[in-house]
């Protein structure tokens, strides 16, 4: 029990600091997507710890449900919501950050001190006996005997949550949806006729056709309407000027 270098100890001492660093990083990075990636990493390490502790079933569920489903959901919503000023790390409520840090230090310190003080009063048992028939079978036996009623209640909760999410996300259209014809008429009647044929696509032809590069106009200036407003707000725009061919050297002959 007090061996220093069991495989589990090695695993722990390598992964635990990494997960803590990732968790801290979650707080400190600016972009929500990066936070999500870091969180996914923390969850994966936790899944490994579950498996290392003999909770095979939970470890797999952790990967499938959390890193698989839940984090994907987060990323979907990030995509829907986009980015705005909320990503700024500047604190707007006076003194809140200091309260949070002080409380965190006190909370963490006390927690660790309390765990250090607490004992179960007996040596730990391990799951060898409990997992004798296999971890999944053991959990299944418990789930369908002692915990069958909570299990059923949880299923009701899931359905309710699904319905609730649908109700919340449902969007009743209040105005008339413009038909293609109406859209075409509106495009010609309003604004400049310059946009009538559609906005320019992004990318510098033959050099860089990614969505984050504005197109170049014939006079060599970038076309601001050619990229999505979201990318501009995020600042994910590459300066297309560097792809401009300043001087076309007429001496260079086309090589065959």
């Amino acid at each position: 029990m007090l061996e220093i270098a069991t495989p589990e100890a090695v695993l722990f001492w390598v992964l635990a600091p990494l997960s803590v660093v990732a968790a801290l990083g979650m707080l400190l990075v600016k972009k929500a997507v990066h936070s999500a990636i870091l969180l996914a990493w923390v969850m994966v390490t936790l899944a490994i710890f579950y498996i290392a502790q003999g909770a095979l079933f939970l470890g797999i569920v952790q990967i499938v449900v959390y890193t698989g489903a839940v984090m994907m959901l987060f990323l979907f919503i990030l995509m829907l919501v986009g980015v705005d000023a909320s990503d700024s790390l500047v604190e707007t409520i006076k003194g809140l950050r200091w309260i949070a840090i002080t409380a965190a230090l006190g909370f963490g310190g006390l927690m660790i001190a309390l765990i250090g003080r607490a004992t179960l009063g007996r040596s730990y048992l391990g799951l060898d006996i409990a997992n004798e028939d296999g971890n999944v079978e053991g959990i299944a036996v418990l789930l369908f005997s002692n915990y069958v009623f909570p299990f059923e209640v949880i299923s009701a909760l899931l359905i309710t949550a699904a319905v609730g999410a649908m109700v919340l996300a449902h969007h009743q259209r209040t105005n008339h949806r413009p038909t293609q014809r109406e859209q075409a008429i509106a495009r010609f009647r309003t604004g400049s006729l310059g946009d009538a044929a559609g906005l320019p696509g992004p990318g510098v032809y033959a050099l860089h056709n990614a969505v984050d590069v504005p197109a170049l106009l014939p006079d060599g200036t970038p076309a601001p309407t050619s990229i999505s407003a979201t990318l501009k707000a995020r600042g994910d725009v590459i300066d297309s000027a560097k792809f401009q061919l300043d001087v076309v050297d007429p001496t260079i002959k086309e090589e065959k």
Partner: peptide
């Protein structure tokens, strides 16, 4: 693991489900 039975894992499972909701 400390207690040598699987009740904790079952509750953790429930926590996951509730967290998903």
């Amino acid at each position: 693991r400390l207690n040598g039975n699987l009740n904790g894992q079952v509750v953790a499972f429930f926590t996951m489900v509730v967290a998903a909701c």
